[in-house]
Design a protein around this nucleic acid. Structure first.
Lengths: 404, 404
DNA sequence: GGTATTTGTGGTCTGTCACAACAAAAGGGG
DNA sequence: CCCCTTTTGTTGTGACAGACCACAAATACC
């Protein structure tokens, strides 16, 4: 059910979002953007200031270019020191923690190596909790921590790691374990790494460019995430966007670890190097070696990249036919090859689609190696800055049951 | 921006939905379901009655089983004669019109043959407008028409038919043409046939069973629709769910009309019969012949169905990996074969997915040949019974642009 | 310095929901 | 049959939030 409080909640969240997107502005400007009265806007701002979410900008000097006649307004902005968001990645070979401030700028980044495959979940939780506590201590002056999101390369549901293939963990209640070890009342969530990266990308502005964005994460395994209107699309059970399972052929290159035919056994990092070796590349070649060879114009490397690109294109066509995204972002350490075959891949994708079908743009991710942890922090940020649907209409069961 | 009127709108729509789903009930019961006060509920009902959307049930006699102590309530229900919804299908070989009442029961169904491929769009519009007007006239006592949705097997965007491959129409502004010919102020929308069928299925209760449902339409071509929370998922450009474009191999069976490798050239009706012929079936065999042979246990027919099923399974795996639906509905005249290979298909799908990955249920559509037109009517109904997001927060651009 | 313009704030009005009170309409027990 | 209990629908009052108006304050422009 909706009440007057729902109205206030919606308008407060809209105000926060406008301030986050547009930066600081006066109450009057904000009111105009929101379509609300000046006095109402003032009341909303008073509430938000009480929650330490926004603050009056100290210096009244505004930019010279924006000089206007009349009494100048007091610039209101998101309080950068109003709190912090913590993202942590429990990766296959390292632990990473990123802390962002209220406007989602990264203010701390720590990373240590950690061999998850040969360690117990308990050890992992202990080590990452230590890292989180130390990072939090170093930014205590930036306001209270507002939430923690732990990101892991695994199928995740309701805070429980169902199946982390790459590290052999199953049914680990990560959220509960971390809640106890970090801070009693801190909201904790657990998320799949590709999903977190997808959200991290939306905070780079991708969702401004297209309503539906697909993110493809290429490491040894291949995962993915889908955002719709800047929010994660999770599917019926929370596992949408598992692009590694797309079928692109009958075999693959990555030995026995992955299912034959699956996209990840064609374009994962292992697979890429296997292609290179099969075409005559050195048996000890690394990804860096292959990249170097590509830059030199080495024909063997080019051929390997071409084969990789063809498989990628086949996978992309599948997800395009289903989702019709406006933008596809490629991320993960295996994605760099795309730079060398972008034209071929784009062409192959167009060839397979119907003539009038709108093909998406395909781009490389701009997030660094700490992108997943950053995306985790963004997820908490998004939650805090979003309209809580349960405060508007608790049950929204899509009506639509036909009676006889 | 949200105002008090937004609150009323949300609560009024919630009330309508509860009445639609649960049938009639007293104001007091409705208030309990909605979590609203009795007096508030009464006020909302008064508004809805003024709009002719709901009505007090005439007979005060309630069902004997539901007898309760205390003053009996007056049963409030959706007014069945409060208006009609019109769905029309402009198919390849026939025109169909379905009119439903306020609770989405089909009250009229008319169909005439029409060879769209050899007729101009103008003729098609004229003929279907006649059919619509005559159907409307026959149900004038059921209340005013509330909207019209025309459904067509084509890529549709903003009321314009971009590309109707099967009838050779391109860039036809169908909505505008119909608005002029049917009724001046009637809301008119145009929708893809598979999308309409998907919504028709949600009105059979599918969205109650799973939040994400994929609908696969199998005629000569193969299309599809996706519903999320009972509403259509359209993708960035409105063309999501074009499952016919999924790649499942390198060739196909359906001659040159469709792209090689695409799902529709493997499992479309033409393709199915081509498989049957190639395996030794009669050159003149129809779908009915093949079905008969299957029922007799004819091994040639079984083999053809098996091949068809394998291609279908490959396509389903693709969309499952992307969407993670909880339910897949197969519809269209080509879908009937599924009944004979259901077990094989399910098994093949499970084999290709990761072990812990939740596979969806796969079922046949229960909608008849007028299903698409019915779905069109449901779309209008859904629009009328839905919360209008623009009345809560006009701009919801997913916040999320990271400033530097 | 005076005027025009804009801002922030306080007061009042209106729409919506919550709550309390009450008459009306039923069942149940004596 | 009468009275008590329970439930319903309606009405009146208060709380909350946004709209509108008025006013002091602060600036630009002449």
């Amino acid at each position: 059910m909706a009440t007057q409080q729902s109205v206030r909640h919606v308008n407060a969240m809209c105000a926060l979002n406008v301030l986050f997107r547009e930066g600081g502005m006066s109450r009057a400007d904000l009111g105009r953007v929101l379509g609300l009265n000046r006095s109402t806007t003032g009341s909303i701002i008073a509430d938000l200031m009480a929650e330490r979410l926004v603050i009056e900008h100290e210096s009244h000097s505004r930019h010279p270019g924006t000089a206007r006649v009349g009494r100048p307004g007091i610039v209101i902005e998101i309080d950068p020191a109003g709190g912090t968001f913590i993202g942590a990645e429990l990766g296959v070979d390292r632990l990473t923690v990123v802390v962002t401030d209220m406007v989602c700028r990264q203010i701390v980044h720590r990373s240590i190596s950690f061999d998850a495959a040969h360690r117990s979940p308990e050890t992992g939780v202990r080590r990452i909790a230590e890292l989180i506590r130390s990072a939090m201590a170093s930014v205590a002056d930036r306001g209270p921590p507002r939430g923690l999101c732990v990101v892991i390369p695994a199928l995740v549901k309701d805070g429980v790691v169902c199946n982390a293939l790459t590290m052999g963990w199953r049914d680990v209640p990560l959220a509960t374990m971390l809640r106890q070890r970090v801070m009693p009342d801190l909201p904790v969530m657990v998320e799949n790494d590709a999903n977190a990266l997808a959200i991290g990308e939306t905070y780079r502005g991708t969702s401004q460019r297209s309503d539906v964005v697909a993110f493809l994460l290429i490491e040894n395994g291949v995962g993915g995430g889908i955002t719709v209107g800047g929010r994660l699309f999770r599917g019926a059970f929370g596992f949408a966007g598992e692009f590694g399972q797309l079928i692109v052929g009958r075999g693959g290159f990555s030995g026995g670890r992955q299912k034959p035919g699956h996209l990840e056994s064609y374009i994962g990092k292992d697979a890429l190097l296997a292609i290179y070796r099969r075409k005559g590349g050195s048996a000890a070649a690394t990804l860096a070696d292959l990249l170097g060879a590509l830059q030199r114009g080495d024909p063997t490397a080019r051929m390997a990249a071409s084969i990789w690109g063809r498989a990628l294109a086949r996978g992309l066509v599948q997800l395009i036919a289903v989702l019709n995204p406006g933008l596809i972002i490629l991320g993960g350490s295996g994605a760099v090859i795309f730079r060398h075959v972008a034209a071929e891949v784009t062409k192959a994708v167009h060839r397979e689609l119907l003539q009038t079908y709108p093909a998406p743009e395909i781009e490389l991710s701009t997030l660094g190696p700490e992108g997943a942890a950053f995306g985790g922090a963004c997820l908490i940020h998004q939650q805090m800055f979003s309209i809580d649907q349960s405060r508007i209409a608790q049950d929204r069961p899509a009506l639509t049951l036909l009676r006889d």
